[in-house]
């Protein structure tokens, strides 16, 4: 059983889509290559697919009217592989699976996969620094909210939400859910959404799913292009943080690995063996970023922006005073 296998590859998938069409034009073949394969596949795939090319796989033949048709009798049949079934079986052991499936659906899938060996043993993965106050996946109320929100995202439906803020204040309003964000570190779901007023879309927001007391569909739908992109863009920092990372204590490798999930630019100074890094971040995460950078100690120096550096300097100054 292979993970890195041609049956899951882009070329096989492209050929499958082409053969499923039955008859098509050479231009349609090219279009499907562009949709399914890699950027440069147009240089390699057409000669494999076109008949009479010398390199042809002979899966298509030319008809008298200039069209292409498959040599096979049927559209390629679909199949579920053992890898996919074993992966699904493993996911049954994850408590988050119950957020999606009702008891009956969970039971049905469990029975269907009862003879399938899991892809990996339950509990084999341990996230040792995952926060302990994750969302309550076992809670029936949480599951109900999760499903309502997920359905509303697909339907672009506005929800009436009762919410408890981080400071313990109750909030009630109409929100258009856009996407759910999951953090493995926090083990929590958060909801990107737009607050809806009488005149339509208002400000954007982020709701912790675990703090939603109730979410009820309103029956009102709202669609507008670029809503999520707008929210993400507004949250992006206006200026990246610039840091200088030294090679001491394997700092460069540790730093770049830890911040691999960030949009970044790096530049190495060969002489000093120090690396300058520019990191773009979500403004809401500024404090989290600051403390993570301070965690590297003197291996990382925050160079800018000045206000960000000043926050680090202020904490270091306080710490220095505490040790005197």
């Amino acid at each position: 059983m292979e993970l890195f296998s041609e049956i899951y590859g882009a070329y096989f998938r492209t050929a499958e889509r082409i053969l499923s069409k039955g008859r098509l034009t050479p231009k349609e073949v090219q279009q499907l290559i562009q949709e399914e394969a890699f950027r440069d596949s147009m240089l390699f795939l057409p000669q494999k697919l076109m008949p009479e090319s010398g390199e042809s796989w002979e899966l298509l033949r030319k008809t008298e009217d200039g069209m292409l048709e498959r040599v096979t009798k049927h559209a390629p049949p679909a199949f579920l592989t053992l890898l996919q079934k074993r992966w699904l079986r493993s996911k049954l052991d994850d408590p988050k699976m119950r957020l999606f499936l009702t008891d009956a659906e969970f039971q049905s899938l469990s029975e269907r996969l009862q003879d399938v060996q899991p892809l990996y043993p339950a509990g084999v993965f341990r996230y040792f620094d995952k926060f302990t106050d994750g969302d309550p996946y076992e809670s029936p109320q949480y599951r109900a909210v999760f499903r309502t929100v997920l359905r509303a995202i697909g339907r672009h439906e506005v929800l009436a939400v009762d919410y408890m803020t981080g400071k313990g204040k109750s909030l009630r309003g109409h929100f258009l859910p856009l996407k759910l964000e999951y953090s493995q570190k926090n083990d929590k779901f958060r909801l990107y959404c737009i607050r809806m007023g009488k005149r339509g879309a208002g400000g954007s927001g982020m709701l912790n799913l675990g703090r939603i007391a109730a979410a009820n569909p309103t029956g009102k739908r709202y669609m507008e292009d670029g809503l999520l992109e707008g929210v993400l863009e507004r949250r992006r920092c206006s200026e990246p943080v610039q840091v200088l990372v030294s090679g001491e204590r394997n700092g460069i490798e540790r730093f770049l690995m830890e911040f691999a999930s960030f949009e970044k630019r790096t530049e190495m100074d060969e002489e000093s063996r120090r690396c300058t890094v520019w990191l773009w971040y979500d403004q809401q995460d500024e404090t989290e970023l600051l403390i993570r950078l301070l965690g590297f100690g003197p291996v990382v120096e925050i160079l800018g922006p000045p206000a960000f550096r000043a926050q680090a300097a202020e904490r270091v100054e306080r710490q220095y005073a505490l040790l005197q």
Binding site: A78, L80, L83, Q84, F100, L180, E181, K185
Partner: peptide, 30 residues
Amino acid sequence: FFSCLPEFGFAGHTLLRAAGLHNSAFLMKH
């Protein structure tokens, strides 16, 4: 959702592709 996670999410991705589906509801932080 699970196709986005690091525990062999690629297997889930192949399932979605085989059914002509894409992730349209989730983003992953960290």
